[in-house]
Amino acid sequence: MLLNTIELGPENGDRSQPPVVFLHGLFGRARNFGFFQRRIAATRRTLALDLRNHGNSPHGMMDYPTLAGDVRETLAAHDALPATIIGHSMGGKVAMMLALTFPVDVHSLLIADIAPGKGGFSQSQSLAGKMADLRFPDFLDRAAADALLGRIISEKPVRDLMMMNIDMGEHPHWNIGIQEIAASMPAIVGWPEMGDGVHYDGPTLFVAGGRSHYITPDNYPAMRRLFPNYRLETIPDAGHWVHAQAPAAFLELLVNFLSEG
């Protein structure tokens, strides 16, 4: 499946460096990384992808091998392999699966607040079902959408994120594949068993939020086995949305990681 892609980079820029690819999290879209993509695009070719069922990409059932296959097919179509892959949350699991199954296509890897294993998305699993069951009125504006989503989402920042996924006005509807996402949630929460000897040897940086529990010491053995050249950095004042909650600190880590080659 070819995914919707936002590509930015310097005119006549140096293409000797691998492109930098951004993969968003569950219920997100390519432009969630817009601030970082614009900064990096000053000197590097960048691509931000809408994963399947998100943004303007096609819909279909999801699991991590399928999502990684979509990303590889799309980057190949853009002549953008090998690439440095930046992934947050679900996008981080997609990035890890791409590196583990097609290691020659991944130059290096930055994973934002997710680990290689079952877990995460504990609230999202029930939320996806509630979103799929939500019934819209004949007309919807932002105020009415906020009130409607308030029935199932208490946190205003999360409601604001979800409103990006609604086409408002007359005959409002979800513009994401909410039914497919809800049906795929067991696979999204999970993580496939990786065979003996499967690993990615390239440079790998995990960035954890200090107030998040998505990466814990229990994950370290799997991180070491699958990504033997990994290191872990923690941004103390950030939660799971580490790049949005601490953009300056995240950008510094990202720029330094890219400068390492």
Rank of each mutant, 00 (worst) to 15 (best):
G69S: 05
D196P: 10
I153V: 15
K156F: 14
D70H: 11
F27D: 08
R38W: 09
L134G: 02
L49D: 00
R151W: 12
V71H: 09
H24I: 09
A30L: 02
L205V: 01
F121R: 09
E155C: 00
H88A: 12
N53G: 08
G91H: 11
W241M: 12
G239I: 04
P172L: 04
I114T: 14
F27A: 10
R225E: 09
I6H: 09
L251Q: 12
F136T: 02
R38F: 10
P103K: 05
L110G: 01
P19W: 00
D218H: 05
R142D: 14
F257H: 13
L226H: 12
P18E: 04
T234V: 14
I6R: 13
T46G: 04
L2Y: 12
G55V: 11
F35Q: 06
K130W: 10
A238H: 00
F27Y: 09
A246S: 07
L258N: 13
L98E: 02
K130T: 12
G69Q: 06
M185V: 10
A30Q: 02
G190M: 05
D113S: 07
M163G: 00
M97E: 11
S124M: 14
S212E: 13
T101D: 06
H78T: 11
A68D: 09
I86A: 02
I111K: 03
G13S: 12
E7R: 03
F36L: 07
L205I: 02
K93V: 08
F121K: 11
L51N: 01
P116S: 04
R211T: 07
N175C: 14
R159M: 03
L258V: 12
G190Y: 02
I40S: 02
A128D: 04
D196R: 13
G117Q: 07
G239Y: 09
L161D: 04
F206S: 00
F227M: 02
V106H: 08
I166S: 06
A76N: 15
R159L: 01
G120E: 07
A83Q: 01
H171W: 05
M62H: 11
F257A: 12
G117F: 00
L109A: 11
A187R: 14
L232G: 09
S122W: 07
N4Q: 13
